[in-house]
Design a protein around this nucleic acid. Structure first.
Length: 398
DNA sequence: AGGTTAAGCGCG
DNA sequence: AAAGCGCGCTTAACCT
């Protein structure tokens, strides 16, 4: 069966929503937002629209004369999240704006919008998946986008709790753990990185131990957090400058971390250099399975465009291979479900995660089946680990 | 009235 | 001078 048919079936399956729960959350958010607005107006000494970047600029930077830490591409003082977080350390108003923004996002995009997207005939929401949008080979989802449902904050997770199964069913979520780092280990064949995954170690902790020269059990929370930022940064082609900004150390320290990383993981260094070189020589990069991404600007005389293409060259094989793997898993799982006339529905895909609606009495068998299919799609140099969760809503299952 | 862009932010 | 990859959605601001 072609992937497109699998996607169509998933769209048709849809997912059930607890609409009442979302309505309740909407009201609560509205109430909290009004309170924040009042506090903000008191601090500013005037009323203003907390959703208007222009008005926020006027109040923060013209009226209150807070320092301008960053500008937008058009030269206006930026009020972006990281800027306001920095300012919030010294002034009260930025935190209120941030809180308000977060709630406003949740309310307008999710709790207000999703109930209206329930399709009357099925009582469920039906997204559209797009197979040929993302350059790296990922799927995208729209109308509504089910690939950006909140999860990182407690308030956000309450929205996930509204994604529920039919009576007699459970939500089963299965995701690949650290899939892109595992692919980096496979592609680079770096000894240390492969060994960490083979031994089932906490990879960020292992990285921290190497980079900061301490025993794994001695790694502090901050060190692990920094190592995690380094690992992600590598996948994205980040520079010392970017790392410094991310983890709030000076540029020199960030450069030392990166140097240290490449000393400890020389295979990764070599892989990065080879990938860049290959992109320059051939004009494309490819995934483990040979799917290519062409990079017409890799030899551009414009530095910005060239550097952008170089970062894409680093990232695309890893992000793209992860996309290939989960698509293969979707195909083989769908194949099995169809062949066995299974009552199980595959209902969502979120890049490294598959979500199913499973009859209560089949949970254990299907968990095992999904894990086996996802792990078994390819034989890489490191194990592909799949974590499964089960629950009465998507948040519980995740 | 309607469309487009900029800024910002939700997710992996 | 910029500085971390890939998406989609909302509001404000601007434009026709």
């Amino acid at each position: 069966m072609p992937l497109l048919s699998v996607l169509s079936r998933m769209e048709r399956n849809g997912v059930k929503l607890d609409v009442d729960m979302l309505h309740t959350q909407s009201s609560e958010l509205a109430h909290k937002m009004i309170k924040i607005e009042q506090q903000a107006h008191d601090l500013a000494g005037q009323t203003f629209n907390l959703a208007s970047p222009k008005q926020i600029q006027e109040i923060l930077f013209d009226k209150l004369e807070l320092p301008i830490l960053k500008k937008t591409p058009k030269g206006q003082p930026s009020t972006a999240e990281d800027v306001l977080q920095e300012l919030a350390l010294d002034y009260p108003l930025p935190q209120l704006i941030l809180d308000h923004r977060g709630m406003s996002k949740l309310k307008s995009t999710y709790t207000d919008k999703l109930p209206g997207m329930v399709f009357a005939k099925t009582g469920r929401v039906h997204t559209s998946y797009h197979q040929a949008v993302a350059a790296t080979g990922r799927l995208s989802s729209s109308d509504p986008n089910l690939q950006n449902i909140p999860v990182r904050t407690p308030e956000g997770r309450r929205i996930r709790q509204a994604f529920i199964p039919e009576p007699g069913f459970k939500i089963l979520s299965a995701d690949y753990s650290q899939i892109e780092l595992r692919i980096m280990a496979h592609l680079s064949q770096d000894k240390g990185l492969c060994r960490a995954f083979e031994r089932g170690e906490d990879v960020h902790r292992a990285t921290a131990a190497e980079v900061f020269s301490v025993a794994p059990e001695q790694v502090s929370n901050d060190q692990r957090r920094h190592a995690k930022a380094i690992n992600f940064g590598l996948i994205y082609g980040m520079s010392a400058f970017g790392l410094a900004r991310q983890i709030k150390v000076d540029r020199k320290a960030a450069q030392q971390y990166i140097d240290r990383y490449f000393e400890r993981y020389p295979g990764v260094k070599e892989y990065m250099e080879n990938t860049r070189q290959q992109a320059h020589d051939t004009g494309f990069v490819e995934t483990v399975f040979g799917r290519r991404l062409y990079l017409p600007e890799i030899n551009s005389s414009n530095h910005l465009r060239r550097q952008y293409a170089e970062r894409t060259a680093i990232n695309a094989p890893m992000q793209g291979t992860a996309a290939d793997l989960i698509k293969k898993a979707m195909l083989s799982i769908d194949d099995w479900l169809q062949a066995n006339n299974s009552p199980v529905s595959m209902i969502m895909q979120v890049h490294d995660e598959l979500v199913f609606e499973v009859p209560d009495n089949e949970i254990e068998a299907i968990s095992e089946l999904v894990i086996q299919h996802m792990m078994g799609v390819a034989e890489l140099s490191v194990p592909l680990i799949v974590a499964v969760g089960i629950g009465d809503n998507w948040d519980q299952a995740h």
